[in-house]
Write a protein that binds this DNA or RNA. Structure first.
Lengths: 228, 228, 228, 228
DNA sequence: AATGAATGAGGATTCATTCAT
DNA sequence: AATGAATGAATCCTCATTCAT
């Protein structure tokens, strides 16, 4: 780490990117205030000065780090949502799978949530940006899907139409669960999604006495993810 | 203003309590690392030294602050859950109302969640304690209630039985929403709970062709909160 | 200097004053930017932190240091000028003696001038304050004295009445001389003042052929200072 | 703005000179310690590295900058003084005019004085060089002129003969005035010189009762500068 | 109990300087 | 000749912690 010194391994193509990724790790581990830029530098294999060559302040490093790690998510969410097709139940399930993957299972999505919650007061713009560019569009897509499902006669006209957040919330719970317990008290994601989907579709209450009330959901493909 | 300041002379006999409450405010606003014990002291109207008379370190102040503000919640949750009665749908609704109040609407509950998420890495015991003493018992109570509801024929036997967290998750969403947006992008809590309850009970899908599938939920009392 | 450590020699009555005097020495030696507050602290026998206990920033230390060392001069100038009496030639001579003492011979006066010249761009208020509170009143007193001398028939009505700075300028020269050369290329202050006074009174040109044109100045007491 | 920037391609052949002139501006504005070589470079339109190609250290840049801007003054002073002719009163007046121009009115002369005062401790050689090459010769010329004037019967034999600095001092005052106040509290240079000349020639005191004591100075040409 | 003065380790930031290209 | 990337020592400032009173 402090090898023969002098080894200025320069022109490493994407120093800023490397720095931001190292910053992600350090900020995720210690939080904004307790992170030392020196440790970020050490992780990249450069010195403090190098970071200041690329970024004006620690705040700037943090801000750009969030942009850096968020962009791929933003992009993928956008294109995924645009590409949804098929029956609405199927679409919904696909959306849930996707959502869980990005917001709960992927470390970046999880930690971004931690950053927003923990450092939101210091970086209010960041929070607003995520609301505007990520949350609002996503919820709107959800709402449209539900509305279309209702029109198509697949879904009930529920007040949930006003609160697509409700559909979103189990994924958030998993996200927070992970943030809190990491790998202690693990939850089986696949089973959790299945359970949400079942509950979401048919609810808790005994729906009368009919023989085949659960048809629709029963036919749906379960979460395609096999590894979890 | 800094005359013989008699207001300060009250010698509340509860200096430690005062300090912990001031600490709550400061830690909530700035996070652990960025909070200055001096500001906590100033808020109480004493000097830093006084804090060190009662608490050994800053970490200790934080830890005891969490205990201090959590205890009333712990207690109330315990006794509330023990006192639930009546039809299970009604109990569930009551539990939801309660949950929302403590985890989302009350500032203390909200901020404790922020502390756990933001500082969990630094205070792992804290997180474990909340898991053990708050979350697990609460989820267990939820599960028992659902199980009893199923036994009583009121509820379907859903896989949600394994994941009572699902029922808990909208409250968490509201909690996080508040942590992120404070009073920007407000959500109407009463309508939100109603929506959750409706969805939770009857689900999204058109439940076959039966004539009266939604009876139960229709009869349930709506949220008792009148102001929202 | 780094003795047995722990010797917190506290309550030293006038810590702020001590710090400002140490600061004067360090700033005088190195200039504002090149002075290390740590060296100031070392000079007092405390640590950096102590300085920040009393002063918010380095700029503040500098600013207050100037006030601290300037005040006695301001005060003495004010009271001295107010107390002048006697024939105007005598008064003028006394004023010159006084002026030289404060602006040129005394180290503080000299160094304050250096600070104003060297750091004026960074501390414009400082410069304005000295202009307003020191320079303007002093020049005004000078002017009044000359005007009174003219009225009394002792002085010629010269255009110098508009520029009392002219009378002031040799003292400034000595000041700057000292700032530049310290004790190299020394000038004998007493002789210098005598020379100024002679020149000031009677000028360079041969004043006609009269036998006793220089009476007045010839009778004046020479500078009373004997040590220089 | 940062297109192929052709303006920069002029390859002035005098990069060092450009750098030194940029350095003059930056050092004049911020002082030695607070000047960043990077800003000097930016002013020239090159990078820091380029400066280090021509100069070994920052101190070297400063030192050579002073030489660079002083040389023209040195040269002009030398040749001007050598060329003086005519009655001594006229010569004196011409010398004063010249002096004021170089030491007070011209920015370079003024700022060099600031450098000497502010950074003399760090660059003692600089100060000595100016003393030896500029101040001493100039004062010597002044002294010779006065001595010759006395011999010629134009001037009185005053002790000022020992201190030609006295004649120099109003110009210094104007210089310092400018350094301190820039364009605040302006002084009319022409009137100031006239006043000095009047005072210098005939002094303050009522010169006996003679009828025509002021002949000489009255006939002298006033400052040749017409605009002031 | 409480204060106020003091400490000193620690971290953000700056910038003269280096050097491979 | 000139650049751009990198270094690392230096310095300001902060703040948890200590302790005599």
């Amino acid at each position: 780490m402090n090898a023969p010194t002098k080894a200025r391994m320069r022109r490493k193509a994407d120093r800023p990117g490397e720095i931001l990724e190292a910053a992600f790790e350090e900020f995720a581990k210690h939080g904004y205030a307790a992170t030392r830029l020196e440790d970020v530098a050490k992780r990249v294999g450069v010195t403090k000065g190098t970071i200041y060559f690329y970024f004006e302040t620690k705040e700037r490093v943090f801000d750009e780090m969030i942009r850096h790690v968020s962009r791929p998510i933003f992009d993928e969410v956008t294109s995924f949502v645009a590409a949804l097709e098929g029956p609405f139940g199927v679409r919904l399930r696909a959306l849930l799978d996707f959502l869980f993957r990005f917001i709960a299972e992927e470390r970046v999505g999880r930690e971004v949530m931690r950053f927003l919650i923990a450092e939101g007061a210091r970086f209010p713009d960041l929070v607003e940006r995520h609301h505007r560019e990520f949350l609002v569009p996503f919820l709107e897509r959800l709402r449209e899907m539900i509305a279309a499902g209702i029109k198509a006669g697949e879904f009930r006209a529920t007040p949930a139409l006003r609160y697509p957040e409700l559909i979103f919330s189990p994924a958030l719970l998993l996200n927070v669960w992970w943030l809190l317990f990491d790998d202690r008290h693990q939850i089986d994601v696949k089973m959790f999604i299945d359970a949400q989907f079942d509950l979401l579709m048919d609810g808790l209450s005994m729906g009368g006495l009919e023989s085949e009330p659960k048809r629709l959901s029963a036919k749906l493909p379960r979460s395609g993810r096999s590894k979890a």
